[in-house]
Design a protein around this nucleic acid. Structure first.
Lengths: 204, 204
DNA sequence: TGTACATCAGTGAACGCGCGTTCACTGATGTAC
DNA sequence: TGTACATCAGTGAACGCGCGTTCACTGATGTAC
């Protein structure tokens, strides 16, 4: 039943699949075009029929990564805005933990320059805004700023957790930890002297 | 007056200086040991007298980067905790904008594995905790979580700004933009339905 | 103070490697008539 | 339906490159007596 189609069948897809796997194994930095071709079972230069060069392949990989992230974030749900906001960060961190090297690739320089990847990244931001869902009743500028903050929080927390610089308490799951950090951050006003009153560590 | 000392004088320091400069020029990924040696004016293998291998040099560079960041964050100041917290993120983002590739190196994998760099990174976290200064009167666990959030926010916002995924509004400076995002995030409770009340975009 | 020796920080040449990319090619597929 | 031809997706060999690292070495520096 295997489709014995034209030559390889669908080499572009096969290269992207192999590339996505290899990126996790070798790291985004050390990924080589040759190894991707090897993994897809074709000669070293076959990819050049479908991708202009190595960066082009990397960009395509990053785009798929962004699409994956958008799909995951779209699932975020919750009664309150706070719940949804926590869910967004949890889902983002989950992505980063499952695909750490893809996450690194998406944070890398390929993604700043290529317009197609920038567009894909913008879609991530849009997905976050949609998932948090603040548009209706809030100051639009402040809501946008908050969503940028949530994105940054997602990004940063993912980075720090993946790198092992921060981690859940003993016996605490990742999701619970993330929820705790996000809540403490967005509710900082609740337990912190915000304005007017004397700060805790200033001599004055 | 130039010290005509033993051979080079202080090659380790010269290599670190050259390395720090080259990292910004070539990018942390593409930095080669040979180019650092070249820039320091010594032969390709001279660095091996002082660093075990390339990773060892990269680790040392990252440690210096962390120390720089600690110094910068230590300067954070403000009457209220909120001001200090905003200042920390501003200083962190400034660092990332001035030394984007060093920032990338510090977010990279060299820094997860080497104990010396992990220690240097822990110092960054400690510097943030110190600068925010919440210890005295707050729930210690929630204060720690908030500081982790601030670190993540710093990290993530830096990443997104450096990559060009987010940016200040027209006519708005970086510091003002960062302040706006951080405030919107830590004061989310202020203008957002936090609990109990119906969310904005849920059918229910 | 002089001298013999150990140490140490450099040099220059060389290694093997895997890489990205190009070249000329081949043979399968699609298509016009 | 058959045929001639264009297109297209692969192959295999080769290129030049810069890399990390090793080797045997040299000559400056430090030190014990």
């Amino acid at each position: 039943m295997r489709r014995q189609s034209y030559h390889h069948g669908d080499l572009p897809a096969a290269l992207l699949r192999a590339g996505a796997e290899l990126v996790e194994v070798e790291g985004a930095d050390r990924l080589s075009l040759r190894s991707v071709a090897r993994a897809a079972g074709v000669s070293a230069n076959a990819p050049y029929r479908h991708f202009a060069d190595k960066d082009d392949l990397l960009a395509a990989l990053a785009e798929h990564g962004c699409a994956d992230m958008v799909d995951r974030i779209a699932v975020a749900n919750g009664q309150t805005a706070r719940d949804r906001l926590v869910a967004v960060v949890q889902l983002g961190v989950q992505f980063a933990l499952e695909r750490p090297q893809m996450f690194r690739l998406m944070s890398g320089s390929v993604c700043s320059t290529r317009p197609s990847v920038r567009t894909a990244m913008d879609a991530v931001q849009a997905a976050i805004v949609r998932a948090v869902g603040l548009d209706a009743s809030c100051d639009i500028e402040e809501a946008t700023a908050l969503c940028t903050g949530i994105w940054a929080l997602t990004h940063g927390l993912s980075s720090l957790i993946v790198a092992g610089h921060v981690h859940p308490g003993s016996g605490e799951g990742i999701d619970a930890y993330v929820a705790r950090v996000v809540r403490a951050t967005v509710e900082a006003a609740k337990f912190m002297v915000i304005e007017g009153l004397p700060p805790t560590n200033t001599a004055q």
